[in-house]
Each structure stands twice: as structure tokens, then as C-alpha cells.
Lab assay of single mutants.
Amino acid sequence: CEICHEVFKSKNVRVLKCGHKYHKGCFKQWLKGQSACPACQ
């Protein structure tokens, strides 16, 4: 996960249209302050 830098250990992964992958919880937190993929912006 590019947000928390932890390895994906479960199926709790969100894959965006751009192809980047994040933990669902991390991405949900990210969206509270941002509106785009962290890696693409």
C-alpha cells in the first residue's frame, strides 16, 4: 500500500481504475482530504 507502506496481507484491497492498489481503510482515510489517487496526482 503506497499510503501506509505495509504489505497487503488480506483481500481488503481496493484497486483503482488507474491500476494502483491500496488497503480499503487507507484509501477511505485518504479520500477525506484528497480526491485523486495518491500515486497519480
Rank of each mutant, 00 (worst) to 15 (best):
C37W: 01
S35K: 09
H5F: 08
V13P: 08
K11D: 08
Q29M: 05
H20G: 00
C40T: 02
C4H: 01
G25W: 03
C26M: 01
Q29F: 04
K28S: 15
F27A: 13
C40H: 03
H20C: 09
H5M: 09
K24I: 10
H20P: 00
K24Y: 07
Q29L: 09
C1R: 02
C18W: 00
F8I: 13
H5W: 04
C4D: 02
Y22D: 03
V7E: 10
N12L: 06
K9E: 02
V13W: 07
C26Q: 02
K24S: 13
Q29S: 11
K32Q: 13
L31G: 12
G25E: 14
K9V: 01
V15F: 07
C40S: 02
R14S: 13
K17E: 12
C1A: 00
Y22E: 04
C1Y: 01
C26N: 00
F8Y: 05
Q34V: 08
Q29V: 08
Y22W: 08
V15G: 07
G25Y: 08
F8S: 04
K32A: 11
K32W: 04
K11Y: 03
C18S: 00
C37V: 02
G19W: 02
K9I: 02
S35I: 08
C1V: 02
C1M: 01
K24M: 08
K11F: 12
E2K: 09
P38T: 09
E2W: 07
K28P: 06
G33H: 14
V7M: 14
G19L: 04
G19E: 05
C37Q: 02
K32V: 09
V15R: 09
V15I: 14
I3P: 01
G19S: 05
C4Q: 00
G25D: 14
G25K: 07
A36M: 08
W30Y: 12
W30H: 15
K28G: 14
Q41R: 15
V13F: 11
W30M: 09
A39D: 05
F8T: 07
K9H: 03
A39W: 04
Q34N: 15
C1N: 03
K21N: 10
K9D: 04
K11W: 05
K32M: 12
K21C: 10
N12E: 10
K17Y: 02
I3R: 04
H5E: 11
Q29W: 04
H5I: 08
F8E: 06
S10F: 03
H20A: 02
S10P: 05
W30C: 10
L31K: 12
I3K: 04
Q41P: 12
C40P: 03
S35Q: 12
Y22R: 01
W30R: 09
P38N: 04
N12Y: 04
K17F: 05
Q29Y: 05
Q34L: 07
C40L: 02
E2D: 12
Q41G: 13
G25F: 04
H20S: 01
L31R: 13
Q34T: 11
Q41W: 09
C37M: 02
G19K: 07
Q34S: 13
C26L: 01
V7T: 10
E6P: 01
K24V: 12
Q34A: 11
G25C: 12
K24L: 10
F27C: 06
Q29P: 09
C37Y: 00
G33S: 11
H23S: 01
F27Q: 11
